[in-house]
């Protein structure tokens, strides 16, 4: 076994990963929070008003980063599910299942903020626009994965089944996107198109990118926090978990 695989196995072992993640989580949350505040300041205060949409466009600074994260979390989940299914790595199973609720949360925010943006701009809370519909399907895919994971008693089997579903979903996602685009062009002229920020001002782009970075860091913090809980749940019978449980209980008493 060479040094790299040895390192990989050591880091991937539940107690070690639990400890490392414990160190990283507050940092991720902290950096995410600071970056998020900076990004929001940039977006809400520093960025100039859009000449077409007025101040309503400022929703972009939460909407677009969340939309990116919704997709990113799905890819992260599917990649981990793939690793989990092929190499049967426990840690990947938990990482995949940890990212599902976070991705669902981001997708939900995307849908709600998109709706809130659509009302003043398009005059309606919801239109069957191609992007909105694909985003809705993405949310359903997340809910399916989470539902399947929750429905199966055995945790490892549940993670593998839900991971498999995530992989089917990732094959399906581009097909959905393509078909929905095709469907919407069939019913032409019924929706007002979102005005694309083709020539975006640098004062608008830096808050957007900062927010994107903030949500990414936040996502990793949350994934690690959830993975720690998942590891405790999975290794509930092991000694290292029992020690942590008793230590925490003693501190509470």
């Amino acid at each position: 076994m060479n040094a790299l695989t040895l390192w990989f196995h050591k880091t991937g072992s539940p107690p070690t990963f639990y400890r490392i993640a414990g160190v990283l989580v507050p940092w991720c949350y902290g950096i995410g929070l600071v970056l998020g505040l900076v990004g929001l300041y940039g977006g809400l205060v520093a960025a100039p008003r859009d000449y077409q949409q007025g101040d309503a466009y400022r929703i972009i600074f939460v909407h677009v980063p969340c939309a990116w994260m919704g997709l990113f979390a799905y890819f992260f989940m599917a990649a981990n599910a793939f690793v989990a299914l092929v190499w049967r790595i426990k840690l990947s199973e938990i990482l995949a299942m940890a990212s599902a609720p976070i991705g669902a949360a981001f997708t939900f925010i995307t849908l709600v903020t998109g709706s809130l943006w659509g009302k003043p701009m398009w005059g309606t809370w919801w239109t069957w626009d191609a992007r909105l519909t694909s985003e809705l399907v993405l949310l359903f895919l997340y809910l399916g994965v989470m539902g399947l994971y929750a429905a199966i008693e055995d945790r490892r089997q549940a993670a593998r089944a839900a991971g498999f579903l995530a992989l089917i979903g990732i094959v399906n996602l581009p097909i959905v996107h393509f078909s929905v685009n095709w469907w919407n062009t069939l019913h032409q002229g019924s929706t007002v198109r979102l005005i694309g920020p083709s020539k975006i001002d640098p004062a608008m782009i830096w808050p957007l990118l900062t927010m994107a970075l903030a949500t990414h860091v936040w996502f990793f913090g949350s994934v690690l926090a959830r993975t720690r809980t998942g590891l405790l749940e999975l290794d509930a019978g092991k000694d290292w978990v029992r020690r942590i449980a008793l230590a925490e209980g003693a501190r509470r008493d």
């Binding site: 949350y29 101040d55 939460v62 969340c66 925010i109 936040w218």
Partner: peptide, 22 residues
């Protein structure tokens, strides 16, 4: 600029959902 309700609700949804999620 008159869009306060929409913008601030969006920000609030973003913060509340992420706080609950955390």
């Amino acid at each position: 600029g008159g869009y306060g309700a929409y913008v601030w609700t969006s920000i609030a949804v973003f913060l509340v959902v992420l706080a609950l999620e955390a």
